[in-house]
Design a protein around this nucleic acid. Structure first.
Lengths: 315, 315
DNA sequence: GAGGCCTTGTAACGCGCGTCAACTAGAGTG
DNA sequence: CACTCTAGTTGACGCGCGTTACAAGGCCTC
């Protein structure tokens, strides 16, 4: 490992000079020493130790993304990948921390790692926010991933179903702890639309992904219902069950999924689903985080995008 | 933040005493001071700063899992979750690093973070191993995730198909860069079995998850083929296409998936697929890593498990 | 030539921790 | 009583870095 002292010696200057030049305070030095130091640092492939840096500055260049206890969908993964790249472009390293059933306390992680920021993929509780504030860590929870956005998803599903003429709506969750995060706000969005349009309250079901439970759920839906699903998986399962029961889709039952998974495109009939522009969402979220760290990133350039219905033939 | 000095003062001892007691070297101290220090540390909720620790010891308590550029399947996620828990039980923090299209160099990450170990979810190249060795970071690549294991998966699929009487086998990948990691060894396993049994070489297809390409792939398969799929998604897509083309499954075409996703259980006919005991695999991998760090973890207690065919009705 | 200012650079400290060599007190030994 | 030995504890150093107060030299002004 080359240390800053090695660079200093090789460049014939002091360590302090190296440190300043490499940390943006280089304007104070002569053009000549500045370029020399930069060049030597590059030649020696010098990389500041994150530990030393963190110790001296009180915070590292690491950003931790706290993942909720849920299935990592392709969309979520895409967001994280893009965020990883965008942050790397600004010298920050994005690391992921999974939440398990018995979660390690947020506090412990933050206390130990002293990350530059915490990227929460779900809304923080007031307690958690307090912890982070006390530790001086800025916490960003991208708007695209909060309650409001998920409500919009539910609303988009509902509005499409209503537009297609379905008057009796249903919301089908998945009975699995992992979906407790984003399911409720989506259901809420659906219920909102029903209330606004004077439609009856939606039927809400929570089957497991199990042949019997899915068939039961199907049985509980009245003919002519429009069914909004938590994700494409449960939507596809319902379609399969409908085929067995000889229920015609979309005539006897309308189904709309969520996520626009690749599989949605290859079902017959093709699944109608909801897509989110993950690329834009990720970019927005990342820039939001950067600006929270006072790093100009051009947040304003990117408009918030709304979930969009991808029309297939299932509703 | 409470520092070790705070603990020392509150317990009426020196910082050195605190540090030693909290790091396993407590046998040298009197029973009384030992318990007092431990108690005070707990009361003050003291957590050593990872930066200070890393600086002093030359390595942090962080283990980095390098994720390949692929879709994070439920299985992989389960492995990571369990590893997170198991490592936490030994005082190690598992952090995930996504590999993006333009990957940051492994070297940079290691140089900066100085992790205690690197957990690779795919086989390291010789270069990468060299980098890690030079940096003194132990690298563990769990056996369950290497070429050999994936070949076994392909073999298991093949042997099931053969046992069911299919004489002409095929392997269907997904045309997506993300599946370049584990696809080839699985195909190889399938081909091995064909060769051993004197069957013709398998047909290999690489459709995208797109209605036309999947239908085309289906068309390219001769009647009576047994088809091993890269994962359940493509298997389900093929089943959908077969329904459209009125090809009977499993009579005209046998299909076997891989992953045992929840969706596999709810298709009609139910998808035959391959399951891996992720829990055991994760435990083995984690303990392997711990023992690599000279932390006794009982690796021998856990036998390597083989992939297992979950029999449905599709093959 | 004395005083002041600007430019360029550096010495020295502290971040929080782990690790020893070294020290103390007391008990044991001859 | 002088000595050794052991158990228990601590002072002091270094890990690699960022930062700041300050030094040295050059130039300008009056």
């Amino acid at each position: 490992m080359t240390r800053s002292e090695d660079v200093a010696r090789a460049a014939g200057v002091s360590r302090a000079t190296v440190s300043q030049i490499l940390n943006g305070r280089g304007a104070r030095f002569s053009e000549e020493t500045r370029t020399r130091v930069l060049q030597v640092a590059a030649e020696l492939d010098y990389r500041p130790s994150i530990a030393g840096r963190a110790l001296a500055k009180g915070a590292s260049d690491i950003v931790v993304a706290l993942l909720p206890y849920t299935h990592l969908s392709g969309n979520l993964q895409a967001v994280l990948e893009q965020a990883t790249e965008e942050l790397a472009r600004h010298g920050l390293t994005l690391l992921l921390r999974l939440t398990t059933k018995n979660p390690t306390s947020l506090e412990q992680l933050v206390a130990q790692l002293r990350p530059r920021a915490v990227f929460a993929l779900w809304p923080f509780t007031a307690d958690e926010r307090a912890v982070l504030e006390r530790q001086g860590v800025s916490a960003i929870s991208p708007a695209e991933l909060d309650d409001g956005f998920d409500r919009k998803i539910g609303r988009a599903q509902a509005e499409h179903l209503v537009a297609k003429g379905y008057r009796r709506l249903a919301y089908v969750h998945l009975e699995d702890d992992r979906f407790r995060i984003w399911g409720p706000p989506r259901e809420h969005g659906l219920a909102e639309v029903c209330a606004e349009r004077g439609l009856p309250d939606p039927v809400v079901l929570r089957p497991r992904l199990d042949p019997h439970e899915v068939l039961d759920a199907l049985g509980a839906l009245s003919r002519g219902s429009g069914v909004a699903c938590y994700n494409d998986d449960i939507a596809i399962a319902l379609m399969q069950a409908a085929a067995v029961r000889r229920i015609a889709i979309p005539d006897d039952l309308g189904i709309i999924g969520m996520d626009d998974t690749p599989l949605a495109a290859v079902t017959h009939p093709r699944l109608t689903t909801v897509s989110v522009d993950v690329s834009a969402a990720a970019l927005r979220a990342t820039r939001q985080l950067l600006e929270g760290l006072l790093i100009p990133a051009g947040l304003a350039d990117i408009k918030q995008v709304d979930p969009q219905v991808i029309e297939g033939e299932s509703a």
